[in-house]
């Protein structure tokens, strides 16, 4: 992939800086002291087994949860933990379980995403001056552009809930993009998709990155993650285990242990491994004989 060249050509300025984020629910600590930085023009992956706290961490970033400790800064300014202010600052997100406005049309869904970038209030809506019409027309135009970008321009008047699953995922991304974010958070964007759809989503994420939007993505599909991401962070039981490029993460024993479990009870010694190998070698030689 062309990702490496992209990042090196641009000077990496941090877009998102989460420092020391801790989230406790009563006695349960879901996120323990996680630091994460996303630089401009970067696609960063966040992986980890189920229940590792990835979505909780996302919710802390977007203000849906108020983190117990720690700060989240966007382009150097610390964000208040209110979802609408976070979106206003420039962080948009999608949800793990699709949360579209199901009884609104596809176009209306994207228009709602434009909420923070338009300012017309109730009074303007009632008076309907020329400026209102202009702003509304501009919003619609931008929304239609986004629908074209994800390939749903023919379904603008359909109800969101009548879209097939894959298109609902795409619409969620378009809705998030409508707020003109600098950072896009994707929570399992390919869950439940078939390989073709997954590949299409991959292309879509690259296209988004090429527009200058940094992306932080949670995903369980490892091929998807390692194709896509410049950097991957691994979250296990609320703690960040490793962070780095593809090789670093794939080669890390702790990551393998977290996903597959340790092969023996306790720490498997090298002696034991050697023993097993020897035994295997013996058996094969016996067979040949």
């Amino acid at each position: 992939m062309t990702t490496a060249t992209e990042t090196t050509t641009k000077p990496a300025t941090p877009i998102l800086q989460a420092t020391g984020v801790i989230m406790r629910f009563g006695g349960l600590t879901a996120v323990r002291n996680v630091d994460l930085t996303v630089n401009s023009g970067e696609i960063v992956g966040l992986i980890g087994p189920n229940g590792a706290g990835k979505t909780t961490f996302f919710n802390c970033l977007t203000g849906l949860y108020v983190p117990t400790e720690g700060t989240v800064a966007y382009k150097g300014t610390v964000l208040p933990p209110k979802p609408h202010l976070v979106t206003n600052a420039g962080i948009a997100r999608t949800f793990q379980n699709i949360r579209l406005f199901s009884n609104m049309t596809v176009l209306e869904n994207v228009l709602v995403g434009r909420h923070t970038r338009t300012k017309e209030g109730l009074f303007a809506a009632l008076v309907r001056g020329p400026r209102y019409h202009k702003a509304e027309a501009a919003s619609r135009e931008r929304a239609m552009e986004l629908l074209e970008f994800i390939g749903l321009e023919n379904k603008a008047d359909h109800l969101a809930r009548n879209l097939p699953y894959g298109e609902q995922r795409k619409l969620e991304i378009a809705r998030a993009l409508a707020s003109e974010p600098g950072l896009l958070l994707l929570d399992e964007p390919t869950a439940g998709m078939n390989p073709q759809e997954t590949r299409a989503t991959e292309e879509l994420v690259f296209a988004i990155r090429d527009q200058g939007i940094a992306v932080l993505v949670i995903e369980h599909d490892m091929r998807f993650i390692f194709n896509l991401c410049d950097r991957v962070a691994v979250l296990v039981q609320g703690e960040k285990l490793v962070e780095g490029d593809k090789e670093t993460v794939q080669g890390d024993d702790r990551v393998i242990a977290a996903y597959l479990g340790t092969p023996f009870e306790g720490d498997p010694g090298t002696e034991e491994v050697a023993e097993v190998e020897a035994a295997e070698a013996n058996s094969t030689t016996e067979d040949e004989r």
């Binding site: 849906l64 979802p83 979106t87 949800f95 199901s102 709602v112 707020s179």
Partner: peptide, 14 residues
């Protein structure tokens, strides 16, 4: 209408 449909998603849309 967005708030009626899904308040959490609506706030996340700003």
């Amino acid at each position: 209408v967005a708030i009626r449909e899904d308040e959490t998603a609506a706030t996340a849309m700003g």
